[in-house]
Computed example of a mutant assay.
Amino acid sequence: MPSVVTATVQSVSADPTHRFSKRPQPRIQLRAGYGVEGDAHAGATVKHRSRVRQDPTQPNLRQVHLIHSELLGELEAQGFRVAPGDLGENVLTRGVDLLGLPRGTRLHLGAEAVLELTGLRNPCAQIEAFAPGLLAAVLCRDEQGGLVRRAGVMAVVLRSGSVQPGDPVRVTLPPEPHQALERV
């Protein structure tokens, strides 16, 4: 009998201050058009400091940061000590290839919340300050020499809802043709 893989939320994190890591929480509240209640990156317009300096009126395409927990396992195998929330993610998932999904994919988290993927997280120098060598571990090259960003995906909240560890994750792909995720 074939095994069935169920995608789930492994951990949820938020932090009201602009720091690299986020604190794991028992649950987070996602608000449509806003992001994670109580998180420094929530809002309709950009909150990432470098983007605010460029143009504070830009729409916030980075309301929620998601990472697949399988990445943490890969990093641990390379000698890095990383725990949920350490890499600044709001939602840690298991069983879904976040990096392989196209732009516009909808992730249904728990009973109510719906996110739409906007792009890839572009890891910055803060990740290197967290652990020397970690930046190189989350950036690699494909067969053609193109840069592959593995530090998670970014999303906006389409429908509000509460999310907690153990919640199911359901994936809805956008209509074809699919567009690959690019850095946002």
Rank of each mutant, 00 (worst) to 15 (best):
L72D: 13
S50R: 13
G73T: 12
Q29I: 03
V82M: 04
H48N: 15
T57I: 06
T93Y: 09
Q54S: 11
R51M: 15
P26R: 11
G73P: 01
E70R: 14
R51K: 14
Y34K: 08
Q25E: 15
L61I: 01
R51Q: 15
V46M: 00
G88P: 05
T45V: 15
P102V: 08
H65E: 06
S50V: 13
R53V: 11
I28W: 05
R62V: 00
R53G: 01
L92S: 14
A44R: 13
A44Q: 10
R94I: 00
D39I: 10
R94P: 02
Q29A: 09
G100D: 11
T57W: 07
G85N: 03
R53E: 14
A77V: 05
S69F: 07
G88V: 12
H41W: 04
G43M: 12
G88S: 10
D97V: 10
R31Y: 04
P84L: 03
P26S: 13
R31A: 14
T93S: 13
G104W: 09
A40I: 03
R51S: 14
P24I: 08
R23K: 14
L75G: 05
R106C: 14
G104H: 12
G38W: 06
T57D: 13
P56N: 12
A44K: 05
R31P: 02
V91I: 15
V52C: 08
G88T: 08
Q54G: 01
L98T: 06
N90D: 07
R81E: 15
L30V: 08
L101G: 12
G35E: 00
L99N: 04
S69Y: 06
Q63S: 02
G79K: 04
G73A: 14
S50T: 14
L71T: 04
R94G: 13
G33L: 00
G95D: 04
R49E: 15
L61T: 03
D55C: 06
G79E: 06
G38D: 08
N60I: 02
V82W: 01
S50G: 04
P56C: 04
L75K: 08
Q63V: 02
P56T: 03
V64T: 00
T45P: 01
V52M: 03
L30G: 06
G35F: 03
G79M: 09
R49D: 15
I67H: 08
A40R: 14
A77F: 01
V96T: 11
H41P: 03
V82N: 02
V52H: 05
T105I: 05
E89Q: 13
L66E: 02
R94V: 09
T45A: 09
V64H: 02
R81N: 13
A77P: 04
A32W: 06
R51E: 14
P59F: 06
N60V: 02
Q25N: 07
P84G: 06
Q25C: 13
L61Y: 01
L99G: 10
S50Y: 08
L30W: 09
E37R: 08
V64F: 05
A83Y: 14
I28H: 01
Q54Y: 11
L75S: 10
H68P: 09
R49Y: 13
V91F: 11
E37N: 00
L61D: 01
H65Q: 10
A42R: 06
F80K: 10
Q25I: 03
K22R: 09
A42G: 10
L98V: 03
G43C: 07
V36D: 04
D86E: 12
H68Q: 15
L30M: 12
